[in-house]
Design a protein around this nucleic acid. Sequence first.
DNA 1: ATTGTTATTGATCGCATGATCAATAACAGG
DNA 2: CCTGTTATTGATCATGCGATCAATAACAAT
Lengths: 230, 230
Amino acid sequence: MINNRKATLDWSVMSSTIQKRAARKTPAERAAEIAEAAREIALEQGLSAITLRNVAARVGVASGLVAHYQPNVEALVAGIFATIVAAETEEVAGLLETQPTPLEQLGMLLETLMDGSRLDVTAIWVEAWTLGRRNEALAACVREQMDAWQAVVQRVVEAGIDAGEFETFDAPSVAWQILGMVDGLNAQALVRWDGVSDRGTHLARAVEGMVGAARGSLLPGGAPPISPDS
Amino acid sequence: MINNRKATLDWSVMSSTIQKRAARKTPAERAAEIAEAAREIALEQGLSAITLRNVAARVGVASGLVAHYQPNVEALVAGIFATIVAAETEEVAGLLETQPTPLEQLGMLLETLMDGSRLDVTAIWVEAWTLGRRNEALAACVREQMDAWQAVVQRVVEAGIDAGEFETFDAPSVAWQILGMVDGLNAQALVRWDGVSDRGTHLARAVEGMVGAARGSLLPGGAPPISPDS
DNA sequence: ATTGTTATTGATCGCATGATCAATAACAGG
DNA sequence: CCTGTTATTGATCATGCGATCAATAACAAT
C-alpha cells in the first residue's frame, strides 16, 4: 500500500501520436462523438458491446466522461438503437417515394429489405428484442420503432387498396404481417444465408397471396414459382 | 490472514430445511438435475441467465460442482438450447402425424406454431441467434436445429406436392420461407402481441399464395380476407 | 494576469462472471 | 472396521461491468 506513485513520463517528449489528455470540446461536440462511437460499436459488435469503457476507448477518452454525458448505460443503448433503426426506416421510406404505384412501392420494399445489405441492422433488431426484456427504456424504443415501420408499410398497403391494386381489408394487420415475415427471414439469414434460393421471389408470392394481388405482379423480374423451369 | 477459521455451527440441531451438504448422488443423476435446472432457468429468464452460480443455487449445490459437470458454461448453454428446441420440434412433428392430408398437416403446423403457447421457446430462439455470434458451439446447435425444423416442414410440403394439393417447385426453399415467417411473427409477438388480429389467418393466406394452394384451403375456419364481413 | 466555470481525468467501490483446485466427507468394497 | 475412490465444497483468482467523485486543467471572461 506504500509507494504506489505512478512512474512519471515526460509527455513533452512523446511522439505526437500519444495524447496525454483529450482536447476539451463543446458538450454538443463530445456528445455527438460518443453517440457516433457507440453507433459504430453497435453495428460492428452488437448492442451489448456498448460499454462505458468500450465507448470511451473508441473516442479516446476516460470512461468517466462517457458516463458523464448519459444518465446511465441503458439509456445510451436505447438511444443508439433508436438512432440506427430510425435512420433505416426513413431511408427506406424515402426510397419508396421513388416508385409511382403502390404495387411497385411494395415490390421495392421487399426487394430492398431482402437484399442482404442491411444484416447489421437486422442483428440490432434481434438483439434488441432480447435485451428489451431487461432494459425497459430499450423495450419502449423497440415498440416505438416497430410502430414507425408498420406505419410506413400500412401506408403503402392502403394506397394499394385505394388504387384498386390490392384486395384486402385490415391493412394494419397485413402491414404487421409483412414486417414480421421480413424480420424473420432476415434473422434467419443472419445465421444461415444459404439453403434458400430466391428469397425475395418466394416472399413476393406470399405477400401477393396475402394482399390479394395477382401472381407475379410483385417483382415482375422473378420467375413464376409454379413451373420448374429454373 | 490469521484466525480466519469459520464459526462452527451445530448442524445436528438445525431444522431439517437447511442442509449442510448436498446429498451425494450418481454422476448421471446429478448431471440430469443440473440440466433440468438450467432448462428451467433458460425458459424463465433466458439463456444468458444460465450461470454457474445461478444453476448451482437452483440445484442447491456449490457452484464448483456445476462447473465440474461441464467443460465450460458455453457448452452448457448450447446443450440446453438444443434440448429445449429439439423437444419442441419432435412434439410438433408428432402432432402433424395426427392429420391425414398434407393440407391439414400444414394447417395444423401454422395453427400450432402461432397459438402463442410457445413464446418462451421463441424467446430462446431469438436469444440464441444473438448469442451465437460469440458462442461458436451454440451457433452450431442453432444451425443444426434449424435444419431439423426445416426438414419437418419440407417433408409436409413435398407430401402436398405429391398429393397434388400444392403447386410449387423448390420445396426446400418454401420450407425455409415458412419457418422464417413463423419465427418472425412470433418474435414480433414477443414484444408486441397486440395490433394484429387474425395472425394465423393472414399467415395462412400468405402460405397459400406461396405454396400454390387454393384460397381458404388452409385454416378453413378462418374468414376469407377479401370481403370486409368481420 | 486573475478568476470562475466546467470538461476531463483516474482512481475507487461494489458486484457479477467463469474458472480452478486443495480440502473434505460420503460412500463402496474389501 | 478399514481404505480407497470420488462427489462435493468453498475459497480464491483474474476479469469486466456500471457508477461515483474529488482532483485536475483548459478555456473564457474580466
